[in-house]
Amino acid sequence: MRSRQPCTYILASQKRGTLYIGVTSDLVVRVWQHRSGTVPGFTSRYRVFRLVHAEFFDDMTGAIAREKQLKRWHRRWKINLIESGNPNWEDLAVKWGIAEPISTRSC
């Protein structure tokens, strides 16, 4: 995984918990922003920090189109998508070595 590459991602508060769908050109930085709370909003308010799904694209146009598509999906479809590639809802940011486990955060 390259650090700077267009990406659509899904964060979760816990297994089958609150979901957040976003798009970024730098997943490492964006995950850090969500986890550190430097950007106030939905994810910090509802503690949605676990990276459970990511799709990478060659250009930002494709990533944005996919984000819009996923946001229109029913919740069940989103859960099915996550579980098709990540059945245990592992935190991919930790698995890929781009973030520390959430349980070590003091908040």
Score class of each variant (00 low, 15 high):
47 R>V: 04
66 R>V: 11
56 F>L: 15
9 Y>H: 03
62 G>K: 10
63 A>F: 01
33 Q>R: 08
45 R>T: 14
12 A>G: 07
14 Q>G: 12
98 I>N: 00
42 F>Y: 15
27 L>C: 02
75 R>H: 11
5 Q>S: 10
56 F>V: 12
58 D>I: 08
27 L>A: 00
31 V>C: 01
105 R>G: 07
6 P>D: 07
14 Q>T: 14
3 S>A: 13
2 R>F: 09
23 V>C: 13
93 A>Y: 02
78 K>H: 07
51 L>E: 05
61 T>M: 11
44 S>L: 11
79 I>G: 03
15 K>L: 09
23 V>P: 00
56 F>N: 08
65 A>F: 03
25 S>Q: 13
51 L>G: 05
102 I>G: 00
30 R>P: 03
33 Q>Y: 08
70 L>N: 05
83 E>I: 02
104 T>R: 14
80 N>F: 06
85 G>I: 13
71 K>F: 07
12 A>I: 06
104 T>F: 10
15 K>V: 10
2 R>S: 12
70 L>M: 11
22 G>S: 04
43 T>E: 09
58 D>F: 12
44 S>I: 11
66 R>S: 14
107 C>H: 14
17 G>C: 08
38 T>W: 10
93 A>V: 00
44 S>D: 15
83 E>N: 02
17 G>F: 07
29 V>N: 09
7 C>N: 11
44 S>Q: 15
93 A>L: 00
35 R>L: 01
39 V>Q: 14
101 P>M: 07
94 V>F: 04
52 V>E: 05
